[in-house]
Each structure stands twice: as C-alpha cells, then as structure tokens.
C-alpha cells in the first residue's frame, strides 16, 4: 500500500487553515466533479480529492494523519500498525459507511472500522453497502442479450483487519432490451456485510460502445444508409445491415438524400420496442471513366433539371 500525501492532493501547505483546505477543495471539485468535468480521469481524481478533504477537514483525523506523515512521504510503501492511532479519539465511527467503497485502501486502513479491529470490538450486524459500476456493451447486445465478463475492485478485509482491493471477475447476463442509462441490479454482489449481515447489491449502469454507424435515443436507433441515384429515383428493394442483422428495406421511388424511413419495432426490443430510423444518403458514382462521363453528359443533355431553380440561386 502506498502512502498518500493528502496535502499534495489538495495542493495546500501543511500549515493550511481549515478555510484554505475548504477553498482548495472547492476549486478542485469544480474542476474534477464527474458530473460537470470534462477531464478524462475525473472520477478517480474526485475520489482522491474527497478522500483528502475527509481527512484534512476533520481536526481529529488530520492530527492523527499529520503524525504519520512526519515519517512517510507520498508513494512510499506503508503498513499501519493496528495501534497506529492509539491516543486519538474519534467522534462516532472513523468513517461514513458510504465512504469505504469509494475511498482507497490507504484511507480504509487508517480510518475504516476494520482498520481499527481489536479495539472495542462491537457486536453488531450491518448490511453491506450497495456498489455501483458502469458496464459498456455493444448495441447488438441490447438486441440479443449477452453475457459479459467484467472485473471490479472489491475491498476485502484480511485476518489482520487490513483492507486490500481484490479483482473480482463477474460474468453478467445482459438482458435483451436494455437501454443506455438503465441499471441491472445484482442482488448480494455488493460489499460484504459486517458481523454476518447480508451483502449489499451491485448496480450496473449500462452504456453503449460508441458506434459511428448508429445513434441511439432511448430505444430508437438512427442509421444512415447510402443508396445509388437510381435506387433513390426509381425506387428499389435494398439490403442493409442493422443492429438486428441484415434487413430488406424498400426505398420509395423519388427519394432524395436525407429522406427518413421508419422501420417500426426494429429499434431496441422491449415491451414497447423502439423504431429504427434510416436516413437515405444518395451517393454519386464518380465520373472517372469514359462510360461514366458519357452517362452524366447524357443526363445533362436530356434532363431538364435545375436544382437551384426553386431557391432562386
């Protein structure tokens, strides 16, 4: 376990006042809050910042931490002794229940209940906290359902009462018909309970892998399909690949680029399945052979067509 320099995380001096800690925290929260930040590792940074603030804004935790920090520096390997904070009193529990899953092993070992095992061993039961994770799936998975392996870091308490993260691989069944932003709840797959209490639940939030071919709005899917000028002008029955597989689409005669066709019920399945919207995109063949040029010239000669007539251009 690495020693964390919380002063460095917040960018404040060791002598910083409570007010300075708060100010530094707010400034960083504005920058890295995952709900508003555009920074790529916002979530991880915010967790670190919250953790540093939890310690430095609490006078008792800060005092205990400062004593440790005198003998350690950031990144140094570090194992606290069970009595590292002997002589310090905390109001209530050392940490909020919600924090353990979110904070680092370093924090959990110093301030977590389990990190202070052996002292005042309380005989109580507590349900493990619920945990949250994001899972990224392909759009096709929402159409057909799938099984996806995912690896989560799970905090585990060893016999000495130390907390260490362990990689936990879980094969999850993705049910057919999931939407972006929807949750799958896995009962009992959250944090383990305390004193024989039941484990919490794991909530997986569904996200789709970005796919340049498709745009997703709820259960509706938007897709562009290229067509030839004659298919658009004369009408045609074409085959195109969609998230649900290859489908036959009837292009109505007289279609223009940008015409939208709705394939009812071909969106993401569900009790009310979404629709698939196909936008036709007329693609011109290049005039790079004598034959092709001749055909274009024939059209130019034979067709009385001026697309700018209506626009007055």
């Amino acid at each position: 376990m690495e020693f964390k320099d919380y002063y460095q995380v917040l960018g404040v001096a060791k002598a910083a006042t409570a007010d300075e800690v708060k100010k530094a925290y707010r400034k960083l929260a504005r920058q890295f809050h995952p709900d508003v930040s555009k920074e790529p590792d916002a979530e991880r940074r915010m967790q670190e910042i919250n953790e540093a603030k939890a310690v430095l804004s609490d006078p008792e935790k800060r005092l205990a931490y400062d004593q440790l920090a005198e003998q350690h520096h950031a990144g140094q390997d570090f194992q606290p002794s069970p009595e590292w904070d002997a002589g310090f009193e905390y109001r209530g529990r050392g940490f909020e229940e919600a924090d353990l899953g979110e904070f680092s092993d370093f924090f959990a070992n110093l301030f977590g209940q389990s990190g202070r095992g052996g002292r005042g061993g309380r005989d109580y039961q507590m349900r493990g906290e619920d945990r949250h994770a994001k899972v990224v799936i392909d759009l096709e998975d929402a159409y057909h359902g799938a099984v996806r392996a995912m690896t989560l870091q799970v905090p585990q308490v060893d016999a000495q009462g130390r907390v260490a993260s362990r990689a936990h691989t879980l094969n999850v069944r993705i049910p057919k018909g999931v939407k972006a932003g929807q949750h799958i709840r896995l009962s009992g797959q959250g944090s383990p309970g305390v004193g024989g209490g039941p484990a919490g639940d794991l909530f997986l939030e569904i996200h789709f892998t970005p796919d340049p071919r498709y745009q997703i709005e709820g259960r509706d899917i938007h897709q562009k399909v290229p067509v030839t000028p004659w298919e658009a002008a004369l009408g045609a029955s074409i085959e195109t690949s969609t998230p649900s597989g290859v489908v036959k689409v009837k292009v109505p005669a007289g279609s223009q680029s940008g015409r939208r066709l709705r394939l009812k019920g071909r969106g993401i399945p569900g009790a009310e399945p979404g629709d698939l919207y196909i936008t036709l995109e007329v693609v011109l063949p290049p005039a790079n052979t004598d034959k092709a040029r001749e055909l274009y010239e024939t059209m130019a000669r034979e067709l009385a067509f001026d697309p700018r007539q209506r626009t007055g251009g």
């Binding site: 099984v147 392996a149 362990r166 990689a167 936990h168 691989t169 879980l170 094969n171 999850v172 069944r173 049910p175 018909g177 999931v178 929807q182 949750h183 799958i184 709840r185 896995l186 009962s187 797959q189 794991l202 909530f203 997986l204 009790a271």
Partner: peptide, 15 residues
C-alpha cells in the same frame, strides 16, 4: 479469480 457461473440480475424499470 474467475467465477464460472453467470450472474443474472434484474433490470431496474421492469422491477
């Protein structure tokens, strides 16, 4: 550490 069995959850919204 691989868990061989497959975890099936419930879809929030339906439940």
């Amino acid at each position: 550490m691989t868990q061989q069995n497959i975890a099936s959850g419930e879809l929030v919204d339906e439940a």
